[in-house]
Design a protein around this nucleic acid. Structure first.
Lengths: 191, 191
DNA sequence: CGACGCATGTAACCTGTTACATGATTGG
DNA sequence: CCAATCATGTAACAGGTTACATGCGTCG
């Protein structure tokens, strides 16, 4: 099997994000809480640690940007070596990630409960969370990816971003539908 | 936030599986390659390591089963403490796991490629893999979870197992549909 | 004056992955 | 005889999570 690191996307997710626009660790942290973070999560600790390693590898370089009354920002940009690495990585085959759904494990063990109430509550929480994501992605789609009458269909980076969002929408909707099916089946009617 | 371990499902996934039927580490490894493994993957190294820890915690106990011409099997069963722990865990709220989709990160960086061919090939591979899972789950559903005319609708453990499988079906189908949408959008026609 | 946002980190720990290791039997 | 399957592990390392730590500015 191919070396471990080729399949670890955080470094490359950071390269993708920095290639779109230079950023500090703090900026990246916020990006990984939304936009690219909808498909690849990372905490600030991971980001700072990884940025330091990437700087050592010469994939990114930082310039200190002094600010009034705030600590300096270390603004990172992609070096030409980083850009080359990104292009190399983009042509590699990627893993088909197996599902990992804790709720499914719980449901599978549900016959050990006399009272299903806590599990049903959990299912309703999950449903609400996934439905909220569907709404969020739908809103973003309407705001940022409506077909532009002046420029015709989307293309290039915006098209790709839109397609990624469509994936999030589809998967989150599938989870909502699944929660509904389970709740209907276990309670005898709709939640 | 709640302690780390309450959200780590491997120990509890093992409890669920052992509660269904006692097993050796080897048996568990195979189960985690199918059935429960469709929703929670684990390698034999993880399983042996975790079983040892669980034995230390008194959640499981092993009896050595001598075999003709083969190494002894260490057959693990759930202790009453393990059973109690399982019931406790089942009533806890679980995390809504964020998506983590490497392919989406790649797609988002696709505008850095002059030639999309390798990425399109990767998409077709992913599509094929997800479609294979849909077929597999559909086959299992037909074989194991068809409504039984003698006993009416499913209930209890079999119902729960079926609902879990339904989730896998829905999510895998969503991935297939997404791959089709992306391929159609990027190539101008159906794959 | 207290909470929140900006901004960057260290340390400890847990989980997951990969490679390595052993040794027997069964089937082609 | 060679490969696959049964059966159980160790060791090294990479990645992810949580807690801890610091310090300034702004807004209410």
């Amino acid at each position: 099997m191919a070396p471990y690191r080729d399949h670890v996307a955080l470094e490359h997710a950071i390269l993708v994000s920095l290639a779109e626009r230079a950023a500090s660790g703090y900026d990246l942290t916020r990006r990984f809480e939304r936009s690219i973070g909808f498909f690849w999560r990372a905490t600030h600790q991971q980001i700072y640690r990884t940025l330091a390693r990437m700087e050592g590898e010469g994939w990114v370089a930082a310039v200190a940007v002094p600010q009034e009354g705030r600590p300096d920002r270390k603004e990172y940009g992609v070096t030409s070596a980083g850009s080359e690495e990104l292009r190399r990585w983009l042509t590699e085959p990627s893993r088909v990630v197996p599902l990992r759904e804790e709720l499914a494990v719980r449901l599978r063990g549900a016959d050990h409960l006399e009272d299903l109430t806590p599990l049903l509550d959990d299912l309703r929480r999950h449903r609400a969370e996934h439905a909220a994501r569907v709404r969020l992605y739908t809103d973003i789609e309407a705001r940022d990816f409506s077909p532009d009458l002046d420029h015709g269909p989307l293309s290039g980076r915006r098209l790709h971003q839109h397609l990624v969002l469509r994936g999030g929408l589809r998967v989150e909707q599938a989870f909502v539908d699944w929660c509904d099916e389970v709740l209907t089946s276990l309670t005898g009617d709709l939640p």
